[in-house]
Design a protein around this nucleic acid. Structure first.
Lengths: 354, 354
DNA sequence: GTTAGCACTCTGAGTGACAGAGTGCTAACC
DNA sequence: GGTTAGCACTCTGTCACTCAGAGTGCTAAC
């Protein structure tokens, strides 16, 4: 009996159950799954031979693969995709795990910059895979406060606080010695000139200053120049910083036992442009997204799966949290964990910008 | 003829040359070194048989080892130690490499917090091993400036700048809405109260405030409490942060092809207490230190070598830079690279605190 | 449609043979 | 006395081979 070649339509319930069992077994063992073992382990009330027939169907639907003639079955990416779609709506994280994660986050309640690090660490340990998290990066970058603090006879540290949180520092070279009071005074003037300004407006102010040299203290101009530079850097980086954790979890997986590929995967994940695109793309969706193997655009990522979500508010600041693992990944758990952590990060952003 | 058993005293020049050749060959190839190959490759003007005699001597001095009867020789840790001591005084980094590194550092001249990241990245790529760097952490932690910036109706961000540079942020919960002017006012009062204070003095101020509730705005007290907390955190962390790079370089080495050990090595290197001890210990020495295999105190590090140096000024702020690789490491190059980068970091600190 | 039976296939572990690399010893040499 | 050639010996890594085990796919019976 000939089935439709590729898209099998909604699978019969039994076939779907067998597919799910095969995937779960394979995820657990990393070994191709044979019909006999499957019937025994999952107490299916049908014989191995029947299972084999179903397997053959699933294989012709390209949901399962076959490393070689006499091996068991292995899910294809298509199979995982089918599986993920069949479960993704329903899964919620076990209350115990919710509690554990929430508890970990409670520890650093007041230090917001720790949350991102913690999100990555928590995801990595909860899913036993690798995880990434980026800070929520404001869409628009504006000056919030400027301080100048003398550090030595001829140098000072410029502290720039931007709207919605980020802080940057730069060094200033002083032509002569200043008292802190003098520096404070310059700081106040800078505040007056720049607070609330966007990058472009800072540039304009800088141009104005440079057009009339001598009108302002050299340090003043130098500071504006540094601020402009810092803001440009901030603007151009699509993502502020990337925290990744649990690389070693993935290294331990059999499919990566001695891989160089993994190195390139992590190189990609440190790529802020890539992640910036990701944030952009994900900000449309309000749920967790799953990219399985070759569904990832980057060739380097074709061996792994990515379970990610953007958090934050598209009108203020957005960031991304996610998990990276082998395509043979425990998707339900990964999805629900990422979803839960995303929720926590949203709470943080809401609290910050309420 | 019986030599002294273990400490051979200063080796004869020829023996030392052969030891060096063996080590360099082994470092290059990761293969046990045989007498014939050695004579050919290093154009020694003696026969393989003689080399074998010398090898036997070196082996009885425990400078060389023998994986099995009919294999070539492999350096022991003792052998590496001898080698390192025989070369460490003399090596300087090739001018080309100096230039490359200096050039990389020039790119981020004004953003001091980038230097640490860059130091790790540069060391990793120059030595093709893994590298770590920690920011220079001030010995004593004092308040330099406090800002309070409203972020939402009922919350504000506290920005704490400490002496010698570090910046920390914390969230404040506001009981009611404040204008930024009001918050600025509180910030100025905090500045007045706390600038120049050490952790202990901040605690005293906090205790005084808590003893007389109602005397100050609740936000004021809350801010002091957060500051105390941040400073305690800062004080207790032996090292501010650890940047590591190039883990994948080491993973690629044959001795770690499929190792779990390496994971534990890196866990140790993220351990701030361990690194804090290291800084403490290294601050005595004013040159690069080398710890070969079991010379490392941590058992987990017994498979690897560490080439590290403290930088900074013991009266102000100190940090550490270093390289981690297999015991089979190109020590001269690693040592000279670490030494050079340490020099650059010293320049930075000098510039900051001149 | 389901199942038992069976031939067929592929893997992975184990074995033995063997070439190659290297040593250590002895005796000769300078 | 130090150096060297010669040679027996040893250990590794590899290759070919075998074989048990696991699993499939097909056919025929239920």
């Amino acid at each position: 009996m000939a089935r439709r070649k590729v898209r099998p339509g909604p699978l019969e319930a039994r076939s779907a159950a067998i597919l799910r069992a095969i995937i779960e077994e394979y995820v657990a063992t990393a070994q191709p799954v044979g019909s006999v073992a499957l019937v025994e382990k999952y107490a299916l009330s049908i014989s191995p031979a029947t299972v084999r027939n179903v397997m053959a169907e699933l294989e012709s639907a390209e949901l399962l693969g076959h490393p070689h003639t006499s091996a068991g079955r292995v899910p294809t990416e298509r199979g995982y995709r089918f599986y993920v779609e069949s479960i993704s709506g329903s899964v919620a994280l076990a209350p115990v795990e919710q509690l554990m994660i929430r508890h970990q986050f409670g520890q650093v309640e007041f230090a917001s910059e720790q949350w991102f690090r913690l999100a990555a660490a928590t995801l990595a340990s909860a899913t036993r895979a690798a995880a990434i998290a980026t800070p929520a990066k404001p869409r628009t970058c504006r000056v919030r406060r400027v301080d100048i603090l003398g550090t030595a006879e001829r140098s000072a540290s410029l502290v720039l606080v931007m709207a919605d949180g980020p802080v940057r520092q730069a060094l200033l070279n002083l032509a002569h010695e200043y008292t802190q009071d003098e520096l404070d005074d310059i700081g106040r003037q800078l505040d007056g000139l720049l607070v609330g300004r966007s990058t472009r407006e800072v540039d304009a102010a800088l141009a104005a200053l440079q057009a009339q040299p001598g009108i302002a203290d050299a340090v003043y101009t130098q500071a504006v120049e540094r601020i402009s530079r810092l803001m440009h850097e901030f603007d151009s980086a699509a993502v502020e910083e990337v925290f990744s954790e649990g690389l070693l979890n993935v290294m331990a997986e059999p499919e990566f036992a001695r891989s160089e590929r993994l190195g390139r995967v992590f190189a990609v994940l440190q790529d802020r442009v890539y992640l910036g695109d990701l944030v952009e793309r994900l900000s449309e969706s309000d749920d967790v997204s799953v990219f399985i193997g070759s569904e990832n655009e980057h060739e380097e990522m074709n061996d792994v799966s990515l379970v990610v979500a953007a958090y934050g508010r598209s009108d203020r600041a957005m960031g991304v949290v996610g998990v990276i693992g082998p395509t043979r990944m425990a998707y339900p758990h990964a999805i629900s964990t990422v979803r839960y952590v995303r929720g926590l990060m949203n709470e943080l952003v809401d609290h910050l910008y309420a």
